[in-house]
Each structure stands twice: as C-alpha cells, then as structure tokens.
Amino acid sequence: MTGVVLIFGVSGFVGGHLAEEFCSFGYKVYGCDISESSDIADQVTFIPCDILDQVQVRKVISETKPMYIVDLAAISSVSYSWKEPAKTMAVNVEGTLNIFESAKEIIPNAKILVIGSSEEYQRSDDPINEEFSLDSCSPYGLSKITQERFAKLYREQYGMKIYCVRAFNHTGVGQSDRFVIPSWCRQVALLSAKKKRMAISL
C-alpha cells in the first residue's frame, strides 16, 4: 500500500475521479461527504461527514490518520454563490478551517491539498500567470482567496504542509448540468432528439 488518502467532498464530480485514480495506484482511500454517490469506486471506504461539523471532521481524521488530505468539499458554482454567499463562505472557508485545525492537532505532518480557482484572479483579456493580481468579483472567488490566505497563515504559523492550486475550468462525464458546459451538452442533446431549432440558454 502506497499510503492513506482522505478526500473531503468525494461525492462531487472531481472527487469520484480522483478517488479512482488514487485507488489505481495502490493508495488506501477514505472518502467523506454529506451523502454517498453511486459513482464512488468500490475500493473507497466512505464515511459520512458534514465539513461544517468540527466534531465530525475531527473524528474522521482521528480514525483514519491519513498521510494525505484533499479538500474538494466546496460550493463550487459561481452562480450559486451569488444566491447563497453566506453558505458559500461557510463551506469554503469554515469547512476548510475545520480540516486545518483537526489536522494540526492530530496529524500535523500530513500533506493537505486545497483546491482554489481561476476565479480568484482579477478579470483580464490577457494571458495570466500565478503572479497575476488576486481580485475576484464573485462570492465564490472571494471565498477561495480567503481559503488560500488561511492556508498561508497555517503554513507560516504552524509549519503545516498545505498546498494550494488555482484550478481553471474542467469538465467531463458526471459533472452536474448546473455548470455551463454540461448544460450546453444537455440542451444540444435535447434539441437533437426533438429535431427542431431552439435557442440555447446560457
């Protein structure tokens, strides 16, 4: 066995694919989410957990003692973040802090991967790199900037091994049609089946 991985948000679009990838390389994988998905690989040990419940998060980390933690639990829709900004901040920031705090006390040497977003960057028509200004104009983007700032704080103050990425759009099989590309695909499929001309909504 290569090591123990704990994935928060395993029932989401990325979580299922990532869990399967880890399993294929021989890792022991535990997956947490509020509810289980049928798309999770059979080799994954699922543990129900609400990331906003600090007691639950601490219990999961204490029982599994992972070498690696991946934080995929998030409100990840920009449009939804405008409807529920408080919930977006709670899940994306408070939830991540629950992971940091529990890991700090139980497994301080574990490596933690935090998934940020290109939404953190200031809007621009020009190519950007990691040095580009962070100045989001959405609640989702602001929550990810805040998440990343806390990661920096915990690295500097406690020496924790927390890694942040700012992922750009990704899509594929199993992604919810709340997101733009699956929405377009669904609409095109419906139009093709009905064999009539209609406008595709954005």
Rank of each mutant, 00 (worst) to 15 (best):
T2R: 10
V5Y: 08
G9T: 02
L18G: 04
A19C: 06
F22A: 01
F22Q: 05
S24F: 03
V29M: 06
G31T: 08
D33P: 09
I40Y: 03
A41H: 14
V44G: 01
V44P: 04
C49H: 02
C49P: 02
I51W: 11
I51Y: 11
L52E: 07
D53N: 15
Q56N: 12
K65G: 00
L72M: 09
A73W: 11
A74I: 02
A74D: 12
S77V: 06
S79F: 02
Y80A: 09
W82Q: 10
A86Y: 15
A86L: 07
V91K: 04
N92E: 07
I99E: 00
I99V: 11
F100H: 00
E101Q: 05
E105R: 09
I106D: 03
K111V: 15
K111M: 13
V114W: 03
E120T: 01
S124A: 07
I128D: 11
N129C: 12
N129E: 15
L134N: 05
Y140L: 09
G141P: 02
T146Q: 11
E148I: 01
F150I: 02
G159C: 04
K161V: 00
I162A: 05
A167Q: 15
N169A: 15
G172A: 06
V173Q: 13
S176C: 09
V180N: 05
W184H: 07
C185S: 00
C185Y: 11
V188K: 02
A189Q: 01
L191G: 13
